[in-house]
Amino acid sequence: MMWDLLVAPFTEFAFMQRALAGALMLSLSACPVGVFLMLRRMSLTGDAMAHAILPGAAAGFLIYGLEIWPMTLGGLVAGAVVAVGAGAVARLTVQHEDASMAALYLISLSVGVVMVSLRGSTVDLMHVLFGTVLALDDAALKLIGLVLVVTALAFGIFWRALVAECLDPLFLRSVSGMGTVVHFGFLALVVLNLVAGFQALGTLLAVGLMILPAAAARFWTQAVLPMVALAVLIGAASSAGGLLLSYHFSLPSGPSITLSAGAIYLLSVLAGPRGLLVPRLPRRNHRTA
């Protein structure tokens, strides 16, 4: 019965409710960030940042064990160092941000792996890399909620500047000194959401819920606000669908959620009005002007 398949797992088990609550809050928070990452052609920056926070999270984990605040703080610090460092190199030297970001995240990632190998096991590493959405405790849910509030406030206040910085950065610089603030503030939001995400999905896949729904939404609409709304919807659907897959087939939950979003992405590539097939359908008529 549909009820048993889709709803009962969430009503019967508290851990499933927590997982769903966490994943839905993450979708609300991270998917809009992902839309702007994509529109600024920084999708891979999100991926790089996810790797960059590893040594910080690993340091917290190795010193304090699976405690949420040390891991979070460590991740935030590592992410901030890489984001600010890469941004500074890009703005102050000849090198563009793609190269400086790649250089710094590689350094950060190898520091993280060295640290884990000095003291720790592969089990520890797997834990940090892949997260534990089915074991979200109150502290983790509070952290995700806090990040959601901060993200929503930041978007509410800086929306106009963020759109201007994406659409025409030189114009924003000619009328206001806000461009640099917006750029680094946005990177801070990316790090914040990745840190919130790695509690549930791990550092490797936290970026999945950020990028995949945004990338899928791009194929369906040609305006920013609907794109953000659609990305959140896709993120929420992937969260619920992934958790159910994980429950019924005993699959790891993080990859199940990311794979669900991936399936929606592939479907969108094929079927979206701005995707692979629809623009290539043979047309019998064209307009004269």
Partner: peptide, 11 residues
């Protein structure tokens, strides 16, 4: 030389 992003979904 504009830094305008013409692919940005704007009208």
């Amino acid at each position: 030389i504009s830094e305008l992003d013409r692919d940005f979904p704007a009208r």
